[in-house]
Design a protein around this nucleic acid. Structure first.
Ligand SMILES: [Mn+2]
Ligand SMILES: [Mn+2]
Ligand SMILES: [Mn+2]
Ligand SMILES: [Mn+2]
Lengths: 219, 219
DNA sequence: CGAAAAATTTAGATATAACTAAAAATATAT
DNA sequence: ATATATTTTTAGTTATATCTAAATTTTTCG
C-alpha cells in the first residue's frame, strides 16, 4: 500500500490538522517530522499525486477523505500495538511509543483485526488516546487541558498530548498517573505556571506541562 | 543495527549454509532471495565490509561468527512472532510466514525478550523449527526427510523444510499435520514418488514433497 | 589443453527519501 | 507601497537497494 515514509507523513499531517483546523504548512510538518522543508515539499507532491492530500503550492495541505482514512488506519495500528505492549507484554506507558512507531507499519489487515479481538476491542490506548475502529470511528473523548482551567476547578486526568518517553517519565517522577483527580490551586500570573493538587500531594507545573495534561469531568 | 535488506540476506545465507555445509554461491542466494546475481554481489560486499560474511570474489561467501549470531537473532524473532500469531492470535500455520517476515525486522531487544516470556519460552515454532534462545542456542531436532527413508520405515511428522503458504495449504488439503505418524509404503522407481500412510489414510506424494517433510523417531 | 558455457562482477541506470544551497513566492513592517 | 524577512520551492547531491547489459573469471568438456 503506502510506504513507511508516506504513512508517517499522513499521521503527522492528520495530527496537525486536528489540533489546528486550517491548512497545515510545510514548515510545521518539517518541524514535527524532524526533517527539512524541502523534503516535505517533495513528499507533499507525492502524496498529492496519490490523492492523499490536497496541495496548492505555497498554500499548505490538507488531507483528502482518502488521506484521512489512511491516516486513521495507521493511528489505529499504532494505538492497538501500544495497548498490546502495555496490557500483554507488561511494558510501561513511557516505553511503548518508539516500538509502536515500527509495528504500525506492518502490512496486514487481518493481523490488526485479530490483534483488536485479542485485546477485547479497547477504546483507549495507554496514553488515554481513542483507538479508531476498523471504520475509522472513535469515541468522543471530551477533555480540557489544565492550561485552560480556572483556579479552583478540578477533574480526572485521562490523557496526555505528548506521548514522548521524556514527558511520560517526567510525569512518573512527579507521581502523576492517568485516573488521578487533579485540582487547580493557583495560577502564577508571572510565568503562567500552575499549582495543582492530587489526592496525595501538591506540586507546581510549568505552563507547557499544563498544556499537555487532559482532564475529564472538569468542574 | 542492520537494515531489513541486510537482515534478509543474513537469514538467506544462514539457511543455505546450514543445509549445505560449504560456501554459498552468488546465484544460489539470488534465486532464494528472488533477486539478481548483480544485486547479490553488491550486498555481499557491503556485508563483508561490516564483517558479517567472509567474501572472496568469485568464491562465494560464508558467515562470520558475527554474521551467524546476527542471522540467528533474526531467525529467533521470526519464529517467536510466528508462534505468537498462531498461539495468541489464532492464525493457521499457513498464514503466518509473510507477516513474520515483516515483524522480524522490528528493532527492540526488550520487545523480543518480553514476547518470549509471554509465550512461555517456546522451543519450536508452528512449523516445527527450533527457536534459538537469546544466546542463539537451539535444541537439537534430529529429523529425517521422507525422501531419505526406506520402504517400511515410519516416524512422526514434526517439521517442514518449506514454510510457504502454498506448500502448507497443500499439506492441509492432503490432511497431513504435525504430530501425524507416517509410514512409507512404497517408492515408485520410475519418478521417485512415495506412497505413504497415516493413521487415517494413504496417499502418494512426489519426491519434491517428500524432500520437505521431516520425521522424528524414524525406524 | 583450449574453446565454449556458466557464473560472477562491473558499469551504468532507476526509484525512494533524505539533504544543502539557491531561487522564488508570500508575509510583514516601516 | 516597497523593502525586508520569512516561507516555500527548485535544483542538484547523496545513500540504499534494486535492475539490465556488458565484461570478466571460473568451470566444463571435447
Ligand atoms: Mn505513541
Ligand atoms: Mn499513544
Ligand atoms: Mn516463516
Ligand atoms: Mn517457521
Amino acid at each position: 500500500m503506502y510506504s513507511q515514509a508516506e504513512e508517517n507523513y499522513l499521521k503527522t499531517i492528520y495530527n496537525l490538522e486536528s489540533r489546528q483546523g486550517s491548512e497545515v504548512s510545510t514548515n510545521l510538518i518539517a518541524s514535527k517530522a524532524n526533517t527539512k522543508a524541502s523534503s516535505v515539499t517533495d513528499m507533499l507532491k507525492k502524496l498529492a499525486a496519490k490523492n492523499l492530500v490536497q496541495y496548492k503550492k505555497y498554500q499548505g495541505v490538507h488531507l483528502t477523505e482518502l488521506g484521512r482514512k489512511s491516516a486513521l488506519k495507521v493511528i489505529r495500528k499504532h494505538r492497538l500495538w501500544e495497548s498490546f505492549l502495555v496490557q500483554k507484554l507488561n511494558f510501561k506507558w513511557d516505553e511503548v511509543h518508539d516500538i509502536a512507531e515500527q509495528l504500525e507499519h506492518v502490512k496486514s489487515e487481518v493481523l490488526i483485526e485479530k490483534l483488536d479481538a485479542f485485546l477485547k476491542y479497547p477504546k483507549l490506548d495507554p496514553h488515554g488516546d481513542p483507538i479508531p475502529d476498523a471504520h475509522g470511528r472513535t469515541i468522543l473523548n471530551k477533555t480540557v487541558v489544565i492550561s485552560a482551567m480556572k483556579i479552583g476547578s478540578a477533574g480526572v486526568f485521562v490523557g496526555v498530548r505528548d506521548s514522548s518517553s521524556e514527558f511520560l517519565q517526567y510525569l512518573n517522577k512527579k507521581n502523576l498517573a492517568l485516573g488521578d483527580r487533579i485540582k487547580v490551586i493557583d495560577i502564577e500570573p508571572f510565568d503562567g505556571s500552575f499549582h495543582i493538587e492530587t489526592r496525595t500531594h501538591r506540586l507546581v507545573i510549568t505552563k507547557s506541562v499544563a498544556e499537555n495534561l487532559c482532564l475529564k469531568n472538569v468542574k
